[in-house]
Every structure is written in structure tokens, then in C-alpha cells.
């Protein structure tokens, strides 16, 4: 068997936990979390500088070996997402982009329609596009055809820590998508990350659950191990629980006649 790796946008990842930089009490914890979890891709956001305050440079805490995944958070339309993506690329942070378009401020659900349009535009411009979406199979296929490098269905609302509430819909994506499926949002504990990997997700993206833990560095490690365990279980083929059907009378007896 060849080594189990994940390839996105031509980059090879040996670790399947993607992390985020949001909500850390202290940005210095990010470097420790990256080291303990082994994560090789991390999200960042782009914001206007507050001229009155100085400000920390978050990129200082991220080793160069880790792939930056700028997101388009704050965008409410495809056009805004496209603008943010172009800025992020110009800023020299590579051509990976997580498209996140949210028009619903109540539940923070991604807007699949705007996200698809942004994906179409950005994939044509050579971006490695990872759209964050509700798990909708026909939409995922459209994203794939539009050139998305992966699809990132949510497990539960952002920051809710509720786990894989959309498991059965994600399973359809896992079964039918040609591009990697990365479960993003809602994963609150390592066991949920492991469950996502067991069902065949290619990676998971975890931010809040790590950043807001009492000890983010240890929690990062726990998630890293859970993702690895889940992946290993998937590759090792879980035993099925279903029972065999038994016909009341032989179906193949005629072959002996």
C-alpha cells in the first residue's frame, strides 16, 4: 500500500486535521497547538486594520510549513467573497481559499447559492477553492464541476459543538464526490472528529473546540489523535453490524437440478 496522503491543490498533506486561528485567548497558543496536533493547514481571516489599536500579526505564529487557508468570512455575496479571495492571494498567502458566504446572521448557515457562484469565478482564476457549504449532493457535484478542490460540508452550525448532525447527508457526499470531503464546523469533541473520519471524510476542520478548550494545546493533540484513529479505522474497514438475510426456500437450488 502506498502512504495514505491527502492531496489538495497539488499539495500533499499527511495530516488530516485542519485547524483555525479564531477565538484563541492568546495567539501564542496557535504555534503550540499546531505542533501538538500536527495540523498542516490552518484558516485565517482578513479584516480591516483598526487604526487606533496596534495589532498582532497572526502570521507570526504560523510556521511556513503550514498551508494557510484564508477564508472569506464577512462576505455576504459571491462578489464580496471573490474580492476577499483576490486580496488574500495578493497578500502573498498562497492561492488556497475557503469560501464562506453567510447571509443568515441568526444561524450562520452558509449560502450555497452565492458560494457556488464564487467558486465558479475563483476556480477559473486559478484558486484552490474549498467551499464551506450545507451538505447538499447536487450542489456538491456542481461545485466539483465548477473546479472546487474539495467540498467542506458543515457537521452542525458554526461553533455549536453539536457534532455530526448532518451525518447522513455528509455520507452521500463522501460516497459520490470525486474531490475530498472535509467536514467543517460543528465538531465539538475528538470522538466526533473520529466519527467523521470513520465514515470516510477525507479531513475535518476544527477551530472553536480547540481554541476555546481550557488547554488548547492538549486539545489540539487529542483532535490530531482522534482524526488519525478515525482514518485508520476507515482504512482498516469496520466490520458491519447488519445481519444476513435468509431466504425461506433456496434460491439457487435449481443449479443442482
Amino acid at each position: 500500500m502506498s502512504k495514505d496522503v491527502l492531496t489538495i491543490g497539488g499539495k500533499v498533506f499527511t495530516n488530516r486535521l485542519f485547524t483555525g486561528t479564531g477565538k484563541f485567548a492568546d495567539n501564542r497558543l496557535i504555534a503550540g497547538m499546531l505542533a501538538s496536533s500536527g495540523s498542516q493547514m490552518i484558516t485565517v481571516a482578513l479584516r480591516r486594520v483598526d487604526l487606533s489599536a496596534g495589532g498582532d500579526n497572526i502570521l507570526e505564529y504560523i510556521p511556513k510549513s503550514v498551508t494557510l487557508l484564508p477564508n472569506t468570512s464577512g462576505a455576504r455575496t459571491a462578489a464580496e467573497a471573490v474580492r476577499i479571495a483576490r486580496i488574500a492571494r495578493e497578500a502573498g498567502c498562497g492561492n488556497f481559499i475557503k469560501i464562506e458566504v453567510i447571509t443568515d446572521t441568526k444561524y450562520l448557515m452558509p449560502d450555497n447559492y452565492e458560494t457556488l457562484h464564487a467558486t465558479e469565478t475563483l476556480a477559473k482564476e486559478g484558486f484552490v477553492v474549498l467551499p464551506y457549504v450545507l451538505p447538499d449532493l447536487p450542489l456538491a457535484k456542481r461545485l466539483e464541476n465548477a473546479g472546487a478542490a474539495a467540498v467542506m460540508p458543515l457537521g452542525a452550525p458554526i461553533g455549536s459543538n453539536r457534532g455530526l448532525e448532518t451525518a447522513s447527508l455528509i455520507a452521500l457526499l463522501v460516497e459520490n464526490c470525486q474531490v475530498p470531503v472535509v467536514v467543517d464546523a460543528g465538531i465539538g469533541r475528538p470522538s466526533q472528529a473520529a466519527a467523521a473520519m470513520e465514515m470516510g471524510a477525507d479531513a475535518v476542520l476544527v477551530n472553536t473546540a480547540i481554541a476555546t478548550a481550557q488547554d488548547p494545546v492538549s486539545m489540539g493533540r487529542a483532535f490530531g489523535m482522534a482524526v488519525e484513529a478515525g482514518r485508520m479505522a476507515y482504512l482498516a474497514r469496520l466490520a458491519e453490524m447488519s445481519a444476513l438475510a435468509r431466504a425461506s426456500s433456496p434460491l439457487t437450488g435449481f443449479l443442482n437440478e
Binding site: L244, A245, A247, L251, T252
Partner: peptide
């Protein structure tokens, strides 16, 4: 295993 295969196939 044709018979168990058949049972599952029919189902």
C-alpha cells in the same frame, strides 16, 4: 456462498 449471496441479492 451462492445461497447467502442470493438471499442478500434478492433482498
Amino acid at each position: 456462498f451462492l445461497e447467502p449471496m442470493a438471499g442478500k441479492a434478492q433482498q
